[in-house]
Design a protein around this nucleic acid. Structure first.
Lengths: 189, 189
DNA sequence: GTCTATAGCGTGATAGAC
DNA sequence: GTCTATCACGCTATAGAC
């Protein structure tokens, strides 16, 4: 899997954006990291904005597609949640920098993409909420405020990349098992 | 409680930093929001950096102080966790913008403050980890990976400000009860 | 595909009038 | 305490040589 120059630029950009944020990374910083001059970047990409959009929309699409696949399945809510947790873990491992960038810098998307991104995010949360409500209705889940469940689980999954950066050697299957247990069953004996 | 001009500047800055990030907010943006010119800001503050440090170190100190108060108490670990959750909720409500800023922009602190902030953050996590380990040893908590418990709870508490921004009318006591239940007992029946 | 040079504008911060 | 004017520099992006 040899990335071409454009992909290489986007990968490096994601890494820098994760560390300092989109606005604090200049085209000169990015070029230097790649060992070229800033002007040379423009033979591969059209603008700084395009790089950001490429990073964010790429992972946003993968979340959307996976949710559209899991959501309508005729399986128990708990099983759907396990599927979703597994996907967040996998994407966190595969696309750590992209995820960080999506979480922190989506507000710097251009007007063409921002609306789209926000819509995808709302749809994702809506489908997630519906799964929780299914689970409550089926008495699989506690009859507690689904908004708080949603927020609590999703905030953990969304910032998993922060924790993963410091624990890169963990076995993904162990992480999946332990995190699922913690999120679904809590920590009290 | 009438804030003087310096406090007013810092409050407004925190608000803007929360929305766009430190680097994306200019002194001209900040001045405009206050109805003055950028140059006038410098009669009240020394630099943009000073504003950021003031915002972040202020809340970081409050977290540190509270943890130093709760941590050594001779009470069960679960009770300490409830105390900590309560404090995060209270600070989230009182200092929403400051917390957002601390979470997102600490890496833009000047060299004088960054090391200090990171140290406080590590100390906080260490004391939190010790409470979890106490709980496990006392068989109050599940014998599960304390790193995953720590990350899971703390990531929810740290991003609570995002959720609170959309649910400002919730009763803090209800939030405390429901969130504690979700974090400690999970969501499964 | 990378370079140098540069346009055009925005940035944080200062000096000094009022 | 706020203003206008300005400095010195950094920014994204383009033009055109090689």
């Amino acid at each position: 899997m040899k990335p071409n120059r454009k992909e290489e630029i986007i990968l490096t950009a994601a890494q820098l954006f994760k560390e300092k944020g989109y606005s604090a990374v200049s085209m000169r910083d990015l070029a230097q990291e790649l060992g070229i001059k800033a002007a040379s970047l423009y033979n591969h990409i059209h603008s700084k904005q395009e790089i950001l959009a490429s990073i964010i929309m790429q992972v946003a699409n993968r979340f959307t597609l996976h949710m559209e696949e899991v959501s309508p399945q005729p399986i128990p809510a708990i099983q759907k949640l396990e599927e979703i947790i597994r996907m967040h873990i996998d994407l966190t491992i595969q696309k750590t920098d992209f995820l960080a960038c999506m979480n922190n810098d989506w507000m710097h998307l251009g007007e063409e993409n921002k609306g789209n991104y926000i819509e995808m995010r709302i749809d994702y949360e809506t489908k997630f909420r519906e799964i929780l409500q299914e689970g409550i209705a089926a008495k699989e889940l506690e009859e507690s405020d689904p908004e708080i469940m949603l927020f609590s689980i999703l905030s953990t999954l969304r910032t998993l990349y922060l924790w993963y950066a410091k624990n890169k050697n963990i076995n993904p299957d162990v992480l999946k098992t332990d995190l699922t247990k913690t999120l679904l069953q809590g920590i009290i004996v």
